[in-house]
Nucleic acid binder design. Sequence first.
DNA 1: TAATTCGCTAGACCGA
DNA 2: TCGGTCTAGCGAA
Length: 803
Amino acid sequence: MRLGAGKIEGILLDADYKDTENASVIRLFLRTESGIKHFEFPSFKPYFYILTDGSLTEKKLLEIEFGEKAAKILAAERMEFENAENAFKIYFSKVSDLMACREEIKHVKGVLEKREYDIPFSKRFLINNALQPMNMIEIELDKEGNATSAKAKELQKSKFKIYSIDIETYSPGKFSSAKKDPIMMISVAGKDYSKVFSYKKKLAKLEFCKIMQNEKAMLEAFVQELKLLEPDIIVTYNGDQFDFPYIKERCKINGVDFKINSDKTEPSASRKGMDTAFRLKGVQHLDAYQMVAFLTRFQVINLIKYDLESVSAALLGKPKDKFDFKNIQEVWEGEKGIEALAKYNLEDSQAAFEIVQKYLPLSIEVCRLGRLTLYDASRITGGMLVEQLLIIKSFEQNLIVPSKPHESTVTERMSQEVEGAFVREPTHGLHENIAVIDFRSFHPTIIITHNVSPETIDCEHKECASGKNVSPTGHYFCEKNQGFIPRNLAEVLKQRFAFKNEFKKAKKSDENYDLLFAKQWAFKIVLNSFFGYLGYPRSRWYCRECGNSILAWTRHYIKQTMHRAEQDGFEVIYGDTDSAMLKLGKKTREDLEKFVEKVNKEVPKPMELELENFYKRGIFVMQKSGNKAAKKRYALIDYKDNLKIVGFEYVRRDWSNIAKQTQKEVIEAVLKEGNPEKAAQIVKKRITDLKEGKVPKKELVVFSEIQKPLEKYDIINPQVSAALKARKKGVKIEVGTIVGYIITRSGKSISEKAELEEFVQEGNYDADYYIMNQVLPAVERIMQELGYTVEDLKHGGKQTKLF
DNA sequence: TAATTCGCTAGACCGA
DNA sequence: TCGGTCTAGCGAA
C-alpha cells in the first residue's frame, strides 16, 4: 500500500508475521509521526538448523517433501559453528512449512539433530536484527513499499501515549457472566484525560461521563474513542483474564466491531504459560496486574495483597475507597448512588494508569535488554529472560543454541537433589557493636571466578583437574578457555556495576534518575537469574553439577571467611549464605575494614567481600520448640536508629497487625532505648485493649494465600475454613486468592472461628486467641532473651521475686 | 509453563 | 486429652 522508496523512523511497538498464500511475512509496527503503521519484510524467511552426519547435500535437502501438504525446503545453506559440525541452515517460505518439516526431519537419513526450531519467527527477526521494542528504529523501504532493512537508532527518551481502561459489569448472581450480563460502564484514563462511557441518563450530569442509548452504542463509542486516541499502550488491571475477554464477548453479542488492533483486526486471547493473556497487535496491552506480579517476582516490591485497592495504597500511597458491590444490582437499576459507581470506575483506571507510570521504565529496559515486546517483557520470568539473553548472545557469537530438554529429561532433572547454602546457628541474646559483611553478587562472581559452564566442566586438560577451579564437590572447570556462561555473565556483571555506580551518584532531581534506576535493576534481575537457570530443569543450558559446584563454593568461602574472622579476634554471631555478622568487641571499625581488605586479597576476582553496615545493637532469639537459636530471624538497629527486622512475624503477612505492631514496638524499645520495662508495658497495654474489645478489626486480619483448589486440601486450616464459608456466600475464591480472615468468638476450633474479614462485625473477635496465639508468641522469645517470662508480660513488668 | 534450598511456625490430625 | 506427626504457608538468601 505504501509506495515509494525511502526511510521511515518510529518507535518499534510490536512484531508479528502474516501469512499470505505463498509466504509468511514479518511485520513491524511503528509509532510514526502519522500514527501507528506496520511494515512488511518479505525478504526475511523462517529457518532452523539441522546437524548432519556429513552425507547430506543442499540439493538432496531441497528434494524432500514434508507433511500432508508436501512442504519443501526453500533453500539450504552450509554453516560453520564453533559448537557444531556439518550444520545446515534450512529456510522455508512459510512458518507452516517449517512446522511440518521439524516434525519429520528426524526421519531423514543423515540428519542427527534439529536446532533452534522453536524460536518464534517474529522473535527471531528482532534477535537477528538487534531491534529493541519501545525504542527508536529506522526502516528502509523499496519502491513497492516493502521494508528491506531495519536498524536500531540511538537511545532516546521516549514518551508514549498511554490510556488505561476498566469496566463495571452487571452481576445479578454471584459473578458476572459475559454471555448474559451486560457491561454497565467503561472508563478510560490517560494524562489529562478522563472519561466514563455508560447508558444511564442520570450520569449525564457528571462532566466526565459520556452517555449513550444502550450497551451497544456504548461499546461502539468506546471502540471509536480508542481508534481516535490511538494509544501506544493500553493499560488494564487484570485485563488478561477479565476486562478484555469480557469486552470482546459483549461486542460479539451486540454485533459491534472490536477491531482495536493496529492492523484493524480483532484481538484475541492467547496462551501464556498456564494462564491466558490478551494480546493486541501493534498497540501494546500492558496488564498492570501482571506488571505487579513481575515486580514481585524480582523483589522490586513486596505487597500483602494484590487487588487494585491494596496495590494502589501500597505503591501510590493513595488508599482507594472500595465500592460496596453487594448492592450493585440495586444501584444500577434504581440509579441511587450510581454517580459513586462511575467515579469508582474512573478511579480504577486512573490507579492502574499511575502504577504503570511509576514502573514502566523498568519494563522498557527489559524490552531493550531482551529485544522483547512490552507485552512479553511485562510477563516474563527470570529463567526465560536469561534464556532469551543467551539466545541473543549465541547469535552474536556464532554459536548454535542447545535445544530444550524432552519432558522425560525434565522429570528426571526435577528428581535430582541439590544441597543448598550454609546457615550458621546464631549466638542468641542481645549483642552490641556488630558489623555485617557480605559477598556482593556471590553466585555470579563464583561462576565467573571459577569459569562454571556446561562446556567447561571436567574438561580434557589434565592440568585443570588439579588447578584453582576444582570445586569442593570434586568437579573442576577449565582454566584455558572461558565458558559461554561466565563470558556473558561477566558482561552483565560489568554493566550492572557500571549502572549501579552511575545511579548511586545520581540525584533524585536528575532527569535520568528513573532511567538509571530501571537500568541497574534490569541488569540486577538478569544477573541474579543466571544461577537459577543453570539448575532449572527446563533450561537449555542445564548443568546440575555446575549448580552443585557453585553452592559448594559458597559454603566453602563463607565458612573460610568466618574462620579467618575468628582467627583475627572477631566473634562470629551469625551468617547466612553470603553474609557474616561479627561482634567487634574490643576491635575497632578500622580493624574490621582491614580484615575485609585482607580477605579480598585472598579471594579471586571478581569476588569481593563488602562491609554492609555497622549496627549498634542486635537481638537473636531461641526457636519456639527445640533448644536451639533460631536461624533467619533477627533484628538489628544501626547507628542512625534504622531498624532492620528479618524473618520475624513483623515481616510476615500471615500474622495480624496487632501482633506485628506490638512486636515492632517491643523490638524498638529494646534495641533503640534498651528499655525492656517499656516493652513490657507496651505488651500489657495491648492485652488490655484486646480484653476490653477495643481493637478495630483491621488490626486483627490475618492474610494467607489459597494455593490450591479448596477441595484439594487434606487439612482444613483457618484460611481454608474461612474461604469455604465465604464461597458459600458468593465470594469467588480461586487458586492464588489472598484471603484476609479474623478469628471470631463463634465456633470451637480456631478454624471454625475463622471468617473472612468482610463478614465480621466490629468487635466480634476472640480476645483470648489474639492474646495467646498472636501478641504473646510474637514477643515472648524476644523478651525471654532479656529475662522476662510470659507471666511478667501479662502483668506489664517483672514480677517481684520472693528473695 | 515453572529458579533453588534452608528454615521457622501454626494448627489440624491422629493414635495412645 | 495429650503429644507426636504431618500439611501448609511464608520468608531469607
